[in-house]
Amino acid sequence: MIAIVDYDVGNLKNVYTALGDVGLEGTITRDKKVLDQADAIILPGVGAFSDAMDNLTKFDLVETLDRNVKKGKILLGICLGMQLLFDQSYEDGEFSGLSYIPGEIVKFNAPNIKIPHMGWNNLIINRESSLVKNIGNDDYVYFVHSYYAKPNDFNDVIAYAEYSVRVPGIVQKDNVIGMQFHPEKSSQVGLQLLKNFKEMIR
């Protein structure tokens, strides 16, 4: 069972539905016991960084996430959920994140690009990982975000997309994984990534 963390940050059903496509059973929950029992945890999220952190704190979920990450359980952050994995964000202020991956979240800053970075962009593999099995540089995924991750060590980036800068698309530090794009909205490529995620859990 995969726990999809329910902390009032938008619709979680699409993630749940996509897990079903690859034969994974999801549970949308904020029950700490369920999170402790889960085979893996997914942290989804849309909206603003500070609101999301406030909600994780309000529902008293930070400690539970810390404990499970320390145990070695796989945690997958999607979109804003991935940004929360880093140390801090500069979205409308300066806010602390979960600090599972060293680095920060910054705004796109280039004169000739549209913001948000919205649409299908291709993933460029930065380093090998079972997460990108059967994924090549011509595979497109759906992004929508105005801030991006700047990891201290670019080696934590499995795959990135080009958008004025190298935008980390998939990050991984040990058992903590992040996807900046929406795998649940990325058609066949998204399903392949979720299949790869499933293989890692076993």
């Binding site: 496509d21 929406h182 990325s186 058609s187």
Partner: peptide
């Protein structure tokens, strides 16, 4: 629609 398709 949300159940049937995997694009935005």
């Amino acid at each position: 629609v949300a159940e049937a398709i995997r694009i935005p």
